[in-house]
Structures are given as C-alpha cells and as structure tokens.
Design a protein around this nucleic acid. Sequence first.
DNA 1: CTGAAAGCGCTAACAG
DNA 2: CTGTTAGCGCTTTCAG
Lengths: 341, 341
Amino acid sequence: MAEKHQLTLKDIARELGLAVSTVSRALKSHPDISDETIKLVKDYAKEHHYVPNLLAVNFRKSKTFNIGLVIPELVHQFFSTIISGVLQEANDKGYNVLICQSNEKLSDEKKVAQALLNSRVDGVIISLSNETEDYSHLKEFLDAEIPVVQVDKIIEGFDTPKVVVNDYSGAYQAVDYLIGQGYQKVAHLRGRLIVQHSNERHRGYAEAMEQHKLPIKEDYIRICDLQTEKEGYTYAREMMNLPEPPDAIFCVTDLVALGVMEYLREKNIKVPEEVGVIGFSNWQLGEIIRPTLSTVHQPGFELGVKATELLLDKINNGSSSPNIKVVLDADLIIRDSVRKL
Amino acid sequence: MAEKHQLTLKDIARELGLAVSTVSRALKSHPDISDETIKLVKDYAKEHHYVPNLLAVNFRKSKTFNIGLVIPELVHQFFSTIISGVLQEANDKGYNVLICQSNEKLSDEKKVAQALLNSRVDGVIISLSNETEDYSHLKEFLDAEIPVVQVDKIIEGFDTPKVVVNDYSGAYQAVDYLIGQGYQKVAHLRGRLIVQHSNERHRGYAEAMEQHKLPIKEDYIRICDLQTEKEGYTYAREMMNLPEPPDAIFCVTDLVALGVMEYLREKNIKVPEEVGVIGFSNWQLGEIIRPTLSTVHQPGFELGVKATELLLDKINNGSSSPNIKVVLDADLIIRDSVRKL
DNA sequence: CTGAAAGCGCTAACAG
DNA sequence: CTGTTAGCGCTTTCAG
C-alpha cells in the first residue's frame, strides 16, 4: 500500500529554493534562521499540510517514543486503572504505550519482554506476574540500556525505580478505624504468606492491634490462597462458629469481604451492628452491594502516572536519575459496613 | 543515552568478508544465496546476538507494525475485554497496539486520532465515543490510506469494515426466554432513543413480545438516560406501583438490573418467583449478587479479535479486501434471577 | 551466486 | 544566516 506521496523536506526545499537543512531548522525555529525564512517555511508547510515522517525522525534519533507496559491482566479494575494513568502521562509527554499482558504467567512475561526488546521501546514499565520470582529475563533491558520501572508487583532486589502502594498503612488505618469504632475482636482474612502485599497488610493489622493492646488470636486469622468470595464465605462461617466469634473482619480483598458479608447476611448477623467488615482494593462492587463496603482504596491511576514520570525521567536523563522507590498512600474509604459512633 | 553499539549488517559483512546486501539476503534465506553462505551468516548472527534495527527496517518499509486502538474508556469491563482480544490477535501477528482513550468525548477522540495519524500507525481500530456523530475527523485516515475498522460503537455511513454485537437477537433471546418461563407482563428499561444499541435491544424486546402475542404497554417502558443503578431503582418503583405491575423486567444494562433487584429486595418482592429480571452486558457483578443475575453476554474478546483480523487483512491486502460488516451473536446467560420451570 | 551503489527522510557537523 | 555534505541501517535494483 504505497501512500499517496507525502510531502517531504526536500519537496519544500525545492519549491522554496532553500536547502533541506534550512527548512529542517526553520521548522524548529532554530535561532540561526531568520524570522523571515522561518515564517516563509512554516507558512508553506502549514498550507501544504506537511507532516514530518516520524519513521525517519525516529530512525535518525534512534528513539521510538514508545514505551512498553507489561501487566498481569488487562480486564481487571486495578490494573486497568494503572494503565489509564500511564496512558495519560505518556500521551501527554508525546509517548505512545505498547501494552502487553503476562496473564500472570512467567512464560508469557518472558515472551512479551522479548517482543518489547525487539520493538526497541524507549523504556518499560512492568508489574510482575505472580509466578515471577527472579528477574533474569528483565536484565536484558538494562543490558540494552532500556530503562525499566517496576510498579505495584515488584522484586526488591531488581535495581530500578519502583512505585508501590503502602499496604501496611492502608491496613493499619482500616484496623485502627475498626477499633476506634468500638470493635474489639478483629479478625483478619489474609492472603498467602509468600505474597508481599499480603504480608504488609497483615503487618498493618497486627501493629494496629498491638497499638491498641488487643490480643491477636490465632483463630482470628485465616489464609485465603485464592482470595475468592468462596474463601471469604467459608472462613467467615468458621470464625463465626468459634466459641468467641470476632466482632469485625478485615479482609485482604473486597471479593473476600463480599463472601464474608454474604455469609453474615444468610445467618442474619447484622452488618455493621454486630460485625464490622472492611475490604481492600476499592472495587466498584463495594458501592453496589448493601450495605456498601468500607474498603481501602489503592491509588492505581496515580501509581501509573508516577511510574511513567520516573520512566520518562530515566529515559531523558539517563543514569543521573537515581533509582528511587516511591510509596503512595492508600486511603480508607468509609461506607456502611462499619458502624459509625 | 547512546546504546552500547549494536551489531549491524555492516559489522557482520566486514567480519565475514561479505557485502552488506549478501548478509541481508542470507538472513532471509533468499534463494539466490548459497546454503553455505546462509549458514555462515546465520551462525555468526546467532552467535553474536544480531538483532535487526527495527527502526531502520520500519523506516525502509515505511511500516511501523503498530496499530492504533481508540476506545471510549479503559477502566470498563466490556472495553477492556475488547482490548484484550485486540492485543492477543495483534501480538500474535507481530503487531503492537497503541491504545488511546477518548473518555467518551469527541474532542479527545479528535486529539488521539491526530496523534495516531502522526505516529504513522499501519491501521486503526476505533470504537466511537458517545458524542461522535460524524466522521469527518476520521476521514483523514482513509485519505492517508491508513485502514480503519470500526467496532461496537459505529457509524453506519462511514465506509469501513465493522464488527458489532447483535443486540437485537440478544434482547430477543432474553425476552423470549422470560416468556417461555411463564412471565407474561414483561417490562423493559431501555436506553436512550438516539443510541443504536438501545434501539436494537428495544426492537428485540418488542418483537419477542409480538411473536408471543403479548401486548406492549406504554407503562412498561422507561428510558434510562444514564443507565445507572439509581434509574433502575427508581423506575422499578414506578412500575411496581402501577395498578397492574409487571412480572418481569428486561434491563438495558446489568447496572440498571441491579437497581431493579435492589428495589425488589427492599420491598420483599421475591426474585425470581414474583418478578423475573434479566440484564445485559454480563458484568462480573452479576455472578456476585444474590440472586445471581441472568444476563446477555456480549462477546467482547471475540469482537476485538475479529476487528483485528479485518484490520490486518486490510493492511496487508489493501483495497482487495472488502468492507464487510461482521455481526457477532450475544448469548443468553441463565442464572437465578429468572425462575426455572 | 555475490557485490556495488543508490536511496528512504531527516539531522547535524562543518563550511562558508 | 544559509548551504553542503555525510550518514543513520537497511532493502533493493542493477551489474557483474
């Protein structure tokens, strides 16, 4: 598909009786060029709808103005919110974004990483898959001097800028709030032990309890391997059947909280009067169910924006830009699943 | 950031005492080149990790292997599912995808269209914003001989390949099923009159009713301008307070259906025994609420795949590929909000 | 079967 | 202030 002949610098130069380089410089308002010539060229260019051939420019500058974004899943509220932030910041700064999914699989992550490498992106933002435990496949980017920024799901030991959410403080706030509202026997449905997010949330829970001198009972903690509604339901049942059931449940995820609420409704245990519930993630569903779900909001959009800022800084300022780690705060969102004093 | 010097054809040619053109051809196993030379070159290339400079290749071929995708919103289950399909098919065929959001605004749509045009993408897939009523801003693509494919939200008069969901048949199936389960007084909370999706769904509703010789009462139809939960709630109340309330409600969207179910629960009207409810879209929430929501599933992923297939065909076969319109069927998903006979 | 050479459109060093 | 020139890495005639 040959395009209709696109106007080139050469064409303009010929028509205007100038040199190609003069035209090139004039279009960028180079100080060397007289205002007169600049105007002449720009007017001509505008009139004839001159569009620089980006392919040529990029080739010349060996820059694509494309950045790669690797995320575990696209159809996912949190991740798509991150993407949204990345897009906004990148487009704003004249960069395009190539999005790839790893489908939470290491093998796919490796595949797309290779593809991005071949596409010669100017930089990469990545949120690691659940299966990823080392970063050998990502070192290639650094070897090729393509900057990488890690976001949300990261490997500490991989020396790049990082942007994460403060799970610890989000969890602390949630539990602290529960206790402040008079709940005393707070349980925690946590995530897997090897997942950093889960550990941080658990730490927030534990420290809030300690701070208030409340005991942390073994029985009040369950591990949700899959973080599904079903697990929430099951563990809620287990705990509510304890001799001394909890009066509040802090869940590692909204979906788990949903399962909890469902069990409680079935058993006619009133939320928030008898049992308070707080989730984590701030999914849309939290506003939709009744009672509405209190939760911890993770600033996905800001995460995406910040990661992009760090990446573009790396791209443009190279090694002079340090590998900082940015920790964004999570906000407690108070809805009806916790009683108000 | 100068990259560590990348191996080029020239380097290989020099090392091997060959001409650049020979190396180039050898790497593509050109029939002119002797097997011997081919092996020599390929081995050398592999050993030294030769990676062709895509920037140069693209420039030469004036092809970017990038396609643009313009969608109204990214943080949206249906659209992100479409994107997912596009990504899969495009990546599979060696294309990257540049994703842009129009935020349902014509002004943004124009802006990103211009950006894509400048990026010299090889083709564009677009799902129009709600505000878009003409396609003057998109004609530029065709003028520049950049193929366009429309998906889901389309303008009929804009002559490009199109991929859409059969809203009509989805709606028809839903209402037909309701009637088959013994509901007789079926109401419809529809979308706006100027939106094609809404009209098609309404048509499906109307024809199913007619087919079964059931009357379509004015009172049983309401227009949801925003398609929110609140509207569902409000109109459900209005209708259930009619002298002769409906015994089933078919909603233009799951969210509206949710509002309906909420009202019914509040009033202790049993779903599905007293009133049956069907939504449209198959959002995740439908599986989560109780009773689970019957709905019509729109094949977003397939939509994305098909649109990409059509686009790549256009890109590679140009005008010999006709501007067909593909209509994908929507599937009725039966859950607990409709009684089973 | 292989090599030499031109050129894609643009930028930038150098020379007036 | 402007023009000349070289060259980015690759593909592709055209000649051997």
